Deep mutational scan, measured.
Amino acid sequence: MALNTPQITPTKKITVRAIGEELPRGDYQRCPQCDMLFSLPEINSHQSAYCPRCQAKIRDGRDWSLTRLAAMAFTMLLLMPFAWGEPLLHIWLLGIRIDANVMQGIWQMTKQGDAITGSMVFFCVIGAPLILVTSIAYLWFGNRLGMNLRPVLLMLERLKEWVMLDIYLVGIGVASIKVQDYAHIQAGVGLFSFVALVILTTVTLSHLNVEELWERFYPQRPATRRDEKLRVCLGCHFTGYPDQRGRCPRCHIPLRLRRRHSLQKCWAALLASIVLLLPANLLPISIIYLNGGRQEDTILSGIMSLASSNIAVAGIVFIASILVPFTKVIVMFTLLLSIHFKCQQGLRTRILLLRMVTWIGRWSMLDLFVISLTMSLINRDQILAFTMGPAAFYFGAAVILTILAVEWLDSRLLWDAHESGNARFDD
């Protein structure tokens, strides 16, 4: 018995066209964080690309023209004298008006014999932002004059995390709450300039795509075929072959399989920071003279006294001054041990922890910024005066060393310790 099946006739004509040209192939790229070699397709503007294995951002879609970056830099340069030299806060102490600005706080630190601690604050609040705007201006002028731009481009990517104007702005709020127990506070004209400078700096850093600047100024022929001998440069993120001198053909720094002496430098910085954190938390970090009496505060006791007036601000200072430094030390110690013992479990967790400490590390400088600003506000000789204690130097040095330890660690070593050939990683 035959089955009668109805015929289905399409209502619209289906047209099949042959592909007349070869589909576009992607360029081969190595991930600078996990060293995976993959094919990167062509990316349009405002599109980002991520590593298929570790999800690290390979290409950032946010990109401004150099002219727009230069305009932002010149605007920031105009704001800087007002943000640093004009009063941020006014207080009335014992019937006398006192003005506080950024430069005055750094000068008070240096004047009291601790120039190293003052230079830490100076670099993060004044030096690094000033280098940022002058570097962008150098790129703008240098591109037109045919100057060598490689050193500036190499420095810009590392400079971003040292620009800490946003953290200093939080420190202004913390210092205001600490001082309000002794005097009446009012915002100064410099505060508005400083807030504007923070906003412009944040926007500029978020749109400063150094890798795209490398592509514009020093374009290189990408690798179009897969080759395990391809290496990625950690300076400019170019994937290719080393030249005859073993250097990256684009930025001219040595092109090595792994960062040289990464573990040794990381261990040295980490152990030194552990040693410095002990006096930083045991010795007094601030000293207040009130009517001839002397009151010393460690980091913890200062947080407890701050909690009596504002528990939320005390929580912020606790996280930045105690929780973050010790968390960074514990995480980095764990990561280094996992590399030495070739741990194969929990790779995803370790990668996330490394990215976390990379982002939060700079916030530990908050305590030094609060001390710097408070020193310029309260300084009335023996009637009422505020000065920093010996722990300030140890704390600042420990924070900087932990930042350097994270920067010096080559994250690809975590993958080397893991089993080879993993296309995915999980716990």
Rank of each mutant, 00 (worst) to 15 (best):
M1V: 01
N4P: 12
T5C: 07
P6H: 14
I14Q: 11
T15A: 08
T15G: 14
R17C: 10
I19H: 10
I19L: 10
E22F: 11
M36N: 11
F38D: 03
L40P: 06
P41L: 11
H46P: 12
C51R: 06
A56L: 14
K57R: 04
R59H: 10
R59F: 07
R62C: 13
D63E: 13
T67A: 11
T67R: 13
T67C: 13
R68Q: 06
R68I: 15
L69D: 13
A73G: 11
A73F: 15
F74M: 13
T75R: 00
T75P: 14
M76I: 10
L78Y: 02
W84K: 11
H90N: 11
G95M: 07
I98N: 06
V102R: 01
M103A: 03
W107K: 13
K111P: 04
K111T: 06
I116P: 06
C124R: 00
I126D: 05
G127Y: 01
P129M: 06
L132K: 03
I136G: 06
W140H: 04
R144S: 06
R144K: 13
L145Y: 08
L156A: 06
L156R: 02
E157N: 11
K160N: 12
L165E: 07
I167L: 01
V174K: 00
A175H: 01
A175K: 01
I177D: 04
Y182E: 06
A183N: 15
F192E: 07
S193M: 02
V198H: 15
L200T: 12
T202F: 15
V203W: 09
H207D: 07
L208W: 07
L208F: 11
R216E: 09
Y218K: 06
P219M: 09
P222F: 05
E228I: 05
E228T: 09
G235Q: 01
H237A: 07
F238L: 05
T239A: 05
G240I: 04
P242A: 07
D243M: 05
C248G: 00
C251V: 00
C251W: 00
L255F: 13
R256L: 06
L263K: 14
L263R: 05
W267H: 12
A269G: 11
I274N: 05
L276P: 01
L277T: 04
L278I: 07
S286A: 07
I288Y: 01
Y289N: 02
L290M: 09
L300T: 03
S301M: 05
S301I: 07
S301R: 10
N310T: 09
I311Y: 09
A312C: 11
A314G: 05
A314N: 01
G315T: 14
F318I: 03
I319R: 00
I319G: 13
S321A: 10
S321T: 12
L323E: 01
V329I: 08
F333S: 08
F333P: 01
T334M: 14
L336F: 08
S338A: 14
Q345F: 13
R350V: 09
L353G: 13
R355H: 14
T358E: 12
I360G: 12
I360L: 13
G361W: 01
M365L: 05
L366F: 04
L366S: 09
D367F: 00
D367M: 00
S372K: 14
L373T: 04
L373D: 11
T374M: 07
M375Y: 02
I378G: 00
Q382N: 15
Q382V: 13
A385T: 06
A391G: 05
Y394P: 02
F395D: 01
A398I: 04
I400T: 04
T402Q: 05
I403K: 04
E407D: 13
R412D: 00
L413A: 07
D416K: 08
H418C: 06
E419A: 11
G421R: 11
G421H: 14
R424E: 15
R424G: 10
D426K: 15
